[in-house]
Design a binder for these strands. Sequence first.
RNA 1: GCAGGGGUAGCCAAGCACGGAAAAGGCGCAGGACUUAGGAUCCUGUUCUUAGUGAUACAAGGGUUCAAAUCCCUUCCCCUGCACCA
Length: 957
Amino acid sequence: MSGYSEMEKKWQAEWSKNGLDRADRDAGKPKFMIIFAYPGVTGFLHVGHLRGYTCADAIGRYKRMTGYNVMFPVGTHATGNGAISLASRVANKDSDFIDYLIRNGCPEEKLEDLKDPMKAVDFFNTIYVNEYWKRFGFLADWRRFTSSVYADYGKFMQWQFRKLNEQGLLIQKPYFSPACPVHGPVAIDASETDISKGGNAEVQEYTLLKFKRGDEYLVAATLRPETVYGQVCFWVNPDVEYTRIKKGDETWIVSKEAAEKLKLQKDCIKVLSPIPGKEMIGWMCEAPMIHRDVPVLPASFSDPNIGSGLVTSVPSDAPDDWISLEALKKDPGLAERYGVPRSIIDSVIPISIISIEGYGDFPAQDIIKTMGITKPGDPRLDEAKKQVYKDGHHMGRMKDICGPFAGMKVEEAKDKMKQAMIDSGEAETFHDLTEEVVCRCGMPVRVKKVDDQWFIDYGNEELTERTSEHCRSMEIYPPEFNENVHSTLRWFRERACVRQGNWLGTRFPFDEKWIIEAISDSTLYPLYYIVSPYANSGKISPDNMTEEFFDHVVLGKGDVKKVSENTGVSEDLLKEIRDDIRYWYPLDVNLGGKEHMTVHFPVFLFNHRAILPDDMQPGGILVNWYVTGKKNKISKSKGGAQPIPGAIEQFGVDTLRLYYAHVASMFVDVEWSEESVMMYRQRLERIMGAVEELLSSERTGEKGDIDEWLISRFNGHTSTVRSAMEKYDLRQMATAVYFEMLNDIKWYGRRGGNNASTIKEALSIWIRLMTPVTPHVAEEMWSMTGFDSLVSSSLIPDAGPISCSSEYREAFIRDVMSDVAQIKKVTSAEPKKIFLYTTPSWKAKVMRMGLDMAESSTLDIPSLTKKCMADEAMRKNGKAVSEFVKKAVTDLTRSSSVSKKDMAETDEYSLLVSAKDFLREELCADVEIFSADDGNAYDPQNKSKAAVPGRPAIYFE
RNA sequence: GCAGGGGUAGCCAAGCACGGAAAAGGCGCAGGACUUAGGAUCCUGUUCUUAGUGAUACAAGGGUUCAAAUCCCUUCCCCUGCACCA
């Protein structure tokens, strides 16, 4: 195992010494620029992440070996609160987290440093580069490394936003965002990057309905404003304490929890005195829209944490309402406790308002019956509610009772009714989360209104159209994404692009209180890799990188002399950077995981299209799927997967690289398993073993048929590799190189091939084809074979000619062997002697005639039969001929005729005679060969009549 | 809900966008060879049937065609992404 690691280091040092990892402008060479979407700095990476990165390196290496000047830069994305929360967990001595760090090889003395977010970023940057990417043998240009929190990178970002603004793509409007009171807006997503609980929560829009009572309002929250015509009462939880609040000059009653939430979303909210729910029971209040008085009744399901804590009751369409009302009616004792007269409760009668196919007048009643729910509090009520809501929303239609909205579809009525009530002052909107969400810092996350939020306007139709148009000329894989990227682009609306709070990132250039958000600052960055080496080497500093600077080097604006004066960058340097950008850009391939399909890739495309000219638009996108853990996804933050350095030690880098390239198509998820990785390790060892064996053998053989065959096969594989790599299909490429070529080498040896020059030529082809995926092993074998210089800097061979006939002849021999084995198995006999009878010449003749007819597409059974019968000799054999013709014709029409041609032209007899010794050894029996035309052939069972072209008859003794 | 993907031998997985012979390759399993005894290696086999060139298969059911895993329709079942997370 350690042997691998030494070998790996040796070649990595060689590549670096020879400058293979450095990408410099070379006007004499076509360029190729590839990146992978840089990872976020949130902890150690695991073996799954390297799948995509490895593909990028292999593609880059392949391109290099087909004559391109390749730039493959890497960087990291550290924007956000990942590093901050990481640092705070270390500072708080979070023992789980510290264990995780130590387990992944973080030295204890380093922990002190990690309390500083920026140092934590540096720490992981170093690990990504040194422990992962360099050790994986990537030929990345390390001088170009950048990170989204670097000052120079920030300057580029600010320039990008200035350009977006010039295009009129930045807009400002109010926004409702989940936010932590300490950290400001947070992202809610299943991977819980920003938060510690509630990854599945969503922001929901409620309609607040104002029920007038005297000079104050009871405020209910509903998700179904279209049901207001069915309101018959109002629910208050008698065991909850509510509160009056001042909202502008109105007085509202809501739950205390709701009051807190409203403060974040509405202006001028003041909390007044509390009021127990019990006190409100029996009140009458005026329902909005229908302007009828309805009674306030007790309901325990009314939760102060949801919505406003108060609920309007629509029993016809809300299962909870229906069942609570029924319970109330059946239990007069309960009602009397609150002093509500019976007559009031009896007067509350559900009103049918929506017709849904498959339901009666009262959908809520129907679903309760179907599900067998009998009393309030049944946990299935939630499911019942969802079902009725869903059916009502998609299939429902408003009944005549609904005034101006009668006859409308529910979907349509919903918005219209909501808007009507808002316009009349009877309703407002309110946003709430569907479940509890907690920030990484432990504070509850609530929906907060941000008045002056900035957005990038991806809804801009002109931009969407131009971007979509450009995509048509791009190479986008997989094909499914190539097709639906257009609908993804169209689906994009405005996107909030800045945030406030304790975050790492770039200040928004138009208002420094904002920080540019994580996705928006990683859209145009591939371009920055061309500038970054100048900043990294200190030739330019962030101060030099003004709007004018980027306008000039990126867009070619302004006069060099003037720009030089204003920015303090020399004219030569400006020219150099400008030339670099013109040479390298556009980006040829952006490779990223499937999660980027709906977020990163679209904004990457939009921003390029918005800011850069036609000749700087991206050329391709490649999406890779995941390596998953046994049951769930291997998670970056939650660990559980094998650390990368350990995996390298255990399996060797090239094993892993081959595993990623071959284990499955890039466009499916694969489950990580050590067994399958081991399989690839054995495969590599077998290949190295085979090469060593070839090199240590005598190699004194003459050139013969088998040499022609081997080179023909290798030429075929070379062309397979070339066409596979056109589509970046590493898997197909690897199948040819690591499986089929090895099999061919084995067969060559088995057939007695050992010609020195053939072997040298074959190895030269083979090893070069291996280099993109398994470069270390390839270098080792390359030098072992005695070839000069580095294989990594050589060129992939051109595919030479293929010899169909020699390939057919070998396949023929294999078929014969396979038939013999088949018969052996069926008879379970161990023959001492095997007799082979090649086809009678008349059958070959029929075949040839059939082929001719097939070529002029006049082939059918009657005409071929007629043609055969015209032949005097064949007519004697009439019956056999007509039978064979029948078979030959079906055979020829069913398959392509290419191989049949070789079949008809091969002299099977002399071919078998030449392979006689070989067959004797392989079959462990004496072999006698006869032509079926040979009248004197030994053939006691008359087997020879079964012989057909391509398939000799066989007899055992 | 919106958008999209998929169901091929014990397992993984090609092929299907350009319909043309049980369908690559690998793993596993079974025989055999070999032995520096190794997470080996090398042969052979692995739907059924049979001294071989026959039958039947590509989730299920229909259709188009001389011919369908591949095109069309219906049904069933799995999976993925969905905006401040790259």
